[in-house]
């Protein structure tokens, strides 16, 4: 077994790092193998991985439409624009 492989089998810090790197970028073939071996034996990191993906989904799924400006703010905004235009 290579040292890198030995090092990661019990190392959750490194495994979660690779999980993040894989989700948001890419990891090497060797790293993929290391992570695979780690996850096969570590149920805690498996939960971490599921939740990490879920967090990204929830973050990106944020509904823009749920947010509306209040009318008072819009009115002030319009007045400011009008004032700016009249300046010129």
């Amino acid at each position: 077994m290579t040292n890198a492989l030995k090092n990661i089998i019990y190392n959750c810090r490194q495994a979660t790092f690779l999980i993040e790197k894989r989700i948001a970028g890419k990891i090497t073939a060797a790293e993929t193998l290391q992570l695979h071996v780690h996850l096969a034996g570590c149920s805690v990191c498996k939960i971490y991985q599921q939740q990490s993906i879920l967090i990204n989904k929830v973050f990106v799924g944020f509904e823009n439409n749920d947010f509306k400006l209040d009318e008072a703010f819009k009115k002030t905004l319009n007045e400011k624009i009008e004032k700016e235009i009249n300046k010129n």
């Binding site: 944020f62 947010f67 509306k68 624009i81």
Partner: peptide
């Protein structure tokens, strides 16, 4: 003068 009515909510959601 039509910006606020047309785009304010959209831009606000985008920024939020």
């Amino acid at each position: 003068l039509s910006w606020v009515e047309k785009y304010a909510d959209y831009l606000y959601g985008f920024a939020m």
